[in-house]
Design a protein around this nucleic acid. Sequence first.
RNA 1: GGCUCCGUAGCUCAAUUGGAUAGAGCAACGCUCUUCUAAAGCGUAGGUUACUGGUUCGAACCCAGUCGGAGUCACCA
Length: 606
Amino acid sequence: MTDILKEITDVAIEGVKEIYHIDISPDDLLVTPTKKEHKGDFTLVTFSLAKALRQSPPQIAASLGDYIKRSRTWVSDTEVIQGFLNLSLSTDYWSSVLEEMIHDPDYWKPVHNPEKVLVEFSSPNTNKPLHLGHIRNILLGWATYKMFAASGYDVKRVQIVNDRGIAICKSMLAWSKFGNGQTPESAGMKSDHFVGEWYVRFEKEFSKEYLAWQQTDEAQEIFQNRKEQELSSAEFFKNYKNHYFNTYSLMGLEAKEMLLKWEAHDADTLQLWKKMNSWVYAGFEQTYKKLGVEFDKLYYESDTYLLGKDIIEEGVKRNVFYKKDDGSIWVDLTAQGLDHKLLLRKDGTSVYMTQDLGTAEKRYEEFGAERIIYVVGDEQNYHFQALFAMIASYGAPYAKGLYHLSYGMVELPEGKMKSREGTVVDADDLIDVVIKEASDAASEREVLDPDIIRKIGMAALKFFIVKVDPRKRMVFDPKASVDLQGQTGPYIQNAYVRIQSILRKAPDVTTGHASYEPNEDEKLLLNMLSHCRQVIDSAVKEYSPALIANYAYALAKEYHRYYHDVKVLHAESPEAMAFRLKLIRIIGQNILQTMDLLGIEMPERM
RNA sequence: GGCUCCGUAGCUCAAUUGGAUAGAGCAACGCUCUUCUAAAGCGUAGGUUACUGGUUCGAACCCAGUCGGAGUCACCA
């Protein structure tokens, strides 16, 4: 009786055949947990059968109810309301559910084939520290890794580090111009923040230069001849900034020269690049550690940015891609509802798309990954659509296993984060704030272990983010995220802690509980626990750790109420105590395990 | 403007994929600690699921249109 939903479906199909002599498939039936306000544990919805069986839903429900009750001992009672058939399951059934859970510590895990899966997440640029957007990415990536692994998949965690390009050159340039040989140590700063400061410095100096240029005759003439005459000066120059950087800017020129030198393997440039990147990596490492994540393999863009060219060459030969007169190479994706995409510039250098092709190929060769999950923000939806369509177009064996786990942007209550306006929430700052908040709250109670405080603060932060459906944009309210009450990580931790507190005081119990009849709350808790597997399976199928978060919260909430209503250690009978001790132990384990899938740790006390 | 996604209580989010009277938390108000941890529990109040129409036994969910928001449409990543 491992899968009660299947059992119910089976007996219903059997019943329909017996009574109506008609074959139906499991897809024709819907079995759901019974709504709390009605009596029963599971509900069979019969409306969809009405047409095929030529009878009204209440009649069908009644006859099926009779049949099921007659033929299955584990159904103790049935009730028909409209076309809903509510089934109550027997005490024996619930008792056996508890026993199965006790004897199978992995009862909550869905089972899948050990398919090889790669999860790519985090994937930062090396010119500045991690921020709130990365945190959502990292937590989603980590939870995805954990839930796939728990379901039996062979999962590898990777990130691609965007360690080259114009952005890091900006930091490098500003540091070499204005840095006077400062180091993170001499400046007393976390090393990735230190590098970020130089990026900011570049932007500041560049803005100054740009502003000054706007006053020149050259700039004014361009402004006068603008296509969109309705634009104000400020609006026009805001849009023109990128173009200015690439054409007139001296600093832009210097940065681009630096990039060229880097590509030409200029020794000094490479040395500077290595130095600054090593600072950034040291900083990232600390942040990852605080977030409790690690990786199996790091890919560096500096190693991969030339990949993919042979695929393109091959594709041109096979007429999958085409060459324009100027020598650039393109792919036509109009058949897939997309447009033409560039793959190789006319000078033969590659673009982002090119290396993505190469990297996917490389990963398939290295890991034999049958599925690659890219955790990347939804602003890149189109890019991945094109990428996957393209890979499919040349018939790569791994094409069908590619998935873009697209998540929505994190916004602040006052709107979008903008680095230019300094409204970006830094990852390290945020972590400090939530831990500080946990510490303040703890000091009002009793003095607590710093490690417990850390767990509580991180739980608040992580749960706040991971409980939201990844696909949706979310608003991150810093004040609400440090909340320790209500629908939060610490609320769930508190349920766990209360269980541990009881278990610490519990005597060794040898009494059986066979004669104990569980009450409604206990049946509900067991019901929830036995659903855990389906929840995680849905989370895996939908790539949504939020489902697990919502499950864990619902379980904790139900437990808190149960805790309030029922005594475990001072139960009315030894059988009741035996039953409840087993039950709460399972609940505790389940909370621990499901929260672990989200990267959230449980303290023993709080 | 084209394409994609979104719109649920004052705020942040759910809703078992088309099922019963749309649920939680926060904020507000009122209760409950000599009790296994009150970071908790209980109650009150809060909704025309943006709007209009359609599909059907049944719609927050599917279809059409309208309004509002976001993303994207780079020889950037």
